[in-house]
Design a binder for these strands. Structure first.
Lengths: 246, 246
DNA sequence: TTCAAAACATGACAATAGTCATGTTTTGTT
DNA sequence: AACAAAACATGACTATTGTCATGTTTTGAA
C-alpha cells in the first residue's frame, strides 16, 4: 500500500540470443520435459534478456507478445490501483513461467507489471511459437496445465489468507512460505535468500509499510525472526506456522 | 467470516449416466471444441449428477478422483480457516470446469469445498480419462490452458481487490461483476439471477455479515441497488463501477 | 396458514490497521 | 570516508471493520 514510484520505463541492460545449451537451464521443468531435439528447437526460438534494478520486463496494460521463463534471479508481479497503492501478487523464481496464460491469447494486454528484483535473466519467445510448441508437444501442454493449476491454487490460497486473516497472521504466512521456498540453513535458523524490504513484505500481504514494520518489530522482540532485508533470518518456524494458522 | 455450519455430508439426490446428446451441452466450450466423434466418446465417459441444497460435491481434503464441469445451476468454491470462518473463492456457472487443475495430478486432495447453490447438475469423469483426452486432443488442451489462465488472472485480480480496497469498494466490485456475469434486464435496472444472501456476499468479499448488511443498506439508501437475496437488482451500475475503482 | 428458521437490521463498543509526522539507522554510492 | 537516499522506527491520532447483543422481517416447509 505504498505510493507507486513514478520511474520512467527503462530499457533492459543487455540482450542476446541464448547459446546452445548453457548451464542453469536444467532448473526449468518445462524445458526438461521436451526431447533433446525439441529443446534445442525451442531454445533456438528463445532470447535471453538481462534486467537490473529499476527496469521493467513489461508493464500493466502493455500488449502481450511474448511468453517468458525466469532463468536466474527473481521477478515480482505487481498490480496497482488508480490511487497509487500497489500489491505484489507473486514472486517468480527460476523455472517459473509467466505470460503462459490467457493474457497471451486474443491479443490481450498484460494484467500486471513484471519487475526484476535485483539482477535477473529471463528467457522469452514469441507467443505464437509458444502455442505452436504446446500443440506439438502434449507433454509440454500437460506440464503447463499442471503449472497453471498450481498457480491457481496458490492464488486462491492467497485470496483466502487476505480475506480471513489478520495482518500479523498474513505476515507470518509470508515468512513461512519464504522460508520454505527460498530459505537456506543458517547458524541461527533459516536465512531467506530473496532480499525483501519491509515495504516489499507490506505489498505482498496487503498492509501499509508502517504496519509491516511494527509487526516485524514484534516478531523480532518475540525472537521469531532477526535482521532486515539483506539478512532476514527465520528463527522460529514452528511458532510462525502456529501464528499463521491460529 | 461467518461460522462454518456443521452439517453432515449428504449424498447427492440423483445419479445417472448422461444420455447421448442432451440439450444444454452447447454451453460448454471444452466440449464444443471436440469433434462430434470425440465429444460422443467423452460424453460416454462422463456421468451427470444432480445436487441440491445442503449437499457437498466434494469437501476440502477429499482425494481428487474426478474432473468436473458445471452443466446447470451454480456451484460455489469455498475454503475455511481453522476457527470456522469461511470464504467463497469463486462461483462457478454452467460451462465452468473444476478440478481441471493441479490438484488432479499426483493423487492430491481438494484444496477447497464445492457446494451447489440451489439445484445444480454436474458432469464428471475420472481424472485419468480426462488427462488421456487432453493428451489426445491438442485443441482441448489449449482450451484448458486458456481457461486456467483466465481463472488465474481472475484469482489474482481478486487478491488485489482484497489487498487494496475497502469493504464498500469490494462489495461494489462484486455487484458489478454479478451484474455482468449473471445479470438480466429488469424494469428497474439489472436483476442478478444468482441468489445470494448478505452472508454469501460477505463471504465473497472477506467481511463479516454485519458489515455486508450495513454497506448494502447504504447502497440501497443511495439508490444503487434494491432488494435482497431472491430479487437483487442493480439500479446504478455506473456509480457502482466508479465506487469500485476510486 | 402457521410456525420456526434464516435472513436482515441496528446500536454500542472494541480491536485492528491506516495516516501523518518526525526522527534514526542502514545502505550504497562517489 | 562522506553523504544522500532508502529503509527502519515510533508516537499520536483517526478510520475502518469486527464483535456482541438484541430485535424485526422474510422465507420456506409442514
Amino acid at each position: 500500500m505504498s505510493k507507486q514510484p513514478k520511474r520512467s520505463p527503462q530499457q533492459p541492460a543487455a540482450e542476446r540470443p541464448s547459446p546452445g545449451a548453457p548451464a542453469g537451464l536444467n532448473q526449468i521443468p518445462l524445458l526438461q520435459i521436451l526431447s533433446a531435439q525439441d529443446r534445442q528447437k525451442v531454445l533456438g526460438e528463445m532470447t535471453e534478456t538481462r534486467y537490473g534494478k529499476g527496469d521493467y520486463i513489461f508493464r500493466e496494460g502493455d500488449p502481450t507478445e511474448y511468453f517468458h521463463i525466469v532463468k536466474e534471479g527473481s521477478v515480482k508481479c505487481v498490480k496497482s490501483s488508480l490511487d497509487g497503492k500497489e500489491c505484489t501478487l507473486k514472486v517468480l523464481m527460476p523455472g517459473d513461467l509467466f505470460c503462459c496464460d490467457a493474457s497471451a491469447f486474443d491479443g490481450a494486454s498484460h494484467p500486471g507489471t513484471a519487475q526484476p528484483m535485483g539482477d535477473v535473466s529471463v528467457l522469452r519467445m514469441k507467443k505464437e511459437a509458444y502455442f505452436k510448441m504446446l500443440r506439438a508437444n502434449p507433454d509440454a501442454a500437460m506440464e503447463v496445465i499442471r503449472y497453471l493449476g498450481n498457480r491457481l491454487n496458490e492464488a486462491q490460497e492467497k485470496a483466502k489468507v487476505l480475506a480471513l486473516d489478520r495482518a500479523d497472521q498474513r505476515l507470518a504466512s509470508l515468512l513461512v512460505s519464504l522460508a520454505e521456498r527460498s530459505g537456506i540453513k543458517d547458524p541461527n535458523g533459516i536465512r531467506v535468500t530473496v532480499r525483501l524490504t519491509r515495504q516489499d513484505m507490506a505489498n505482498m500481504v496487503g498492509v501499509t509499510t508502517e504496519t509491516a514494520i511494527r509487526i516485524m518489530a514484534r516478531f523480532k522482540k518475540d525472537r521469531l525472526v532477526t535482521g532486515t532485508a539483506a539478512r532476514l533470518v527465520i528463527r522460529d518456524l514452528p511458532k510462525l506456522k502456529l501464528l499463521a494458522s491460529t
